[in-house]
């Protein structure tokens, strides 16, 4: 597009160039939070150039909520309005959990480019590249949640936990999603292409999100399936989120989600960093 740009930019070796090239002052090394935020800024800039990448957190949630409420509502709960009270926290969790996989795809795509060599050769806290990326993703998840809850409210979602309950539910969901993202960053570093990553993610996410308590009460399932649903981390997440939003959550329910998040981060964050350094 701009192939002729540099014909106007004649390069001259002059005082300005010599002085620009001999600047050797090194500022104080920034801390990990600061470099993570700088990488977050990088991710935001990318959104500026490719706004379409926000479709997954805007159009997806709207589509999911409308589709499942009106498709299943009548059949499962007898009325779409009753079903919405049950479904919304679940479908919110499912949607956000599903879009976490884009994090891995982004990284997988990004890491192939030479710019990662530069990041890795800088004297900075290594994980900040990934932490910055995941922080911006958390902003994206918040946006998806806000859109879904607003639409849900318009459709008749009236949570008993009130605004505080809803916010706590979203907070818990974001924490879990942040930890889950580390699984995708690990896979993003292992798998060869975005396509294979997509395949593997779907293979993991489809059963986890559908064979859970998102859509139906697990008591209606055959006992062997019910057993799986009970231990499925997505079910734990949905139970706690639903509980917080409707004001019935117990400490135990919330603790399970926190525990699952800590375990996932504990395993996959160091694993990701190991692979990242090895790459």
């Amino acid at each position: 597009m701009n192939h002729n740009l540099d014909t106007e930019n004649k390069l001259e070796v002059d005082e300005a160039m010599i002085s620009a090239l001999s600047s050797r002052e090194r500022p104080v090394k920034p801390n990990g939070i600061s470099t993570s935020l700088t990488f977050g800024w990088r991710a935001l800039l990318k959104i500026k150039y490719v706004p379409e990448q926000m479709l997954d957190v805007t159009a997806f949630p709207i589509m999911f909520l409308l589709m499942f409420t009106y498709l299943f509502g009548g059949a499962i709960a007898g009325s779409t309005s009753d079903y919405l009270q049950f479904l919304l926290p679940g479908i919110l969790a499912m949607t956000v959990v599903t879009i976490t996989m884009y994090t891995g795809m982004e990284l997988n795509n990004d890491i192939r480019k030479g710019v990662f060599d530069r990041f890795r050769s800088l004297p900075i806290w290594g994980p900040s590249v990934l932490v910055g990326m995941l922080l911006v993703d958390t902003v994206r998840y918040s946006l998806a949640s806000a859109i879904m809850i607003t639409l849900g409210f318009i459709m008749g979602f009236r949570p008993d936990g009130g605004l505080v309950g809803v916010l706590l539910g979203v907070g818990l969901l974001l924490l879990f999603s942040f930890s889950l993202s580390w699984i995708w960053t690990t896979l993003g570093l292992i798998l060869r292409s975005e396509k294979s990553l997509m395949g593997v993610s779907m293979l993991v996410l489809f059963p986890l999100t559908f064979v859970s308590n998102v859509f139906v009460d697990p008591r209606t399932l055959p006992s062997w399936l019910e057993a799986f649903v009970e231990v499925n981390p997505i079910s734990l997440l949905v139970t706690a989120t639903r509980g917080l939003m409707h004001g019935t959550a117990t400490i135990e329910e919330i603790s399970w989600v926190l525990l699952a998040s800590v375990i996932i981060i504990g395993i996959f964050a160091p694993f990701t960093m190991y692979l990242y350094r090895k790459k």
Binding site: R42, L45, K46, V50, G114, V115, S121
Partner: peptide
């Protein structure tokens, strides 16, 4: 500092 064989800058920015 390293300037790699393939551009080590972010093409999107």
């Amino acid at each position: 500092s390293l300037t790699g064989q393939f551009a080590s800058v972010d093409g999107d920015l």
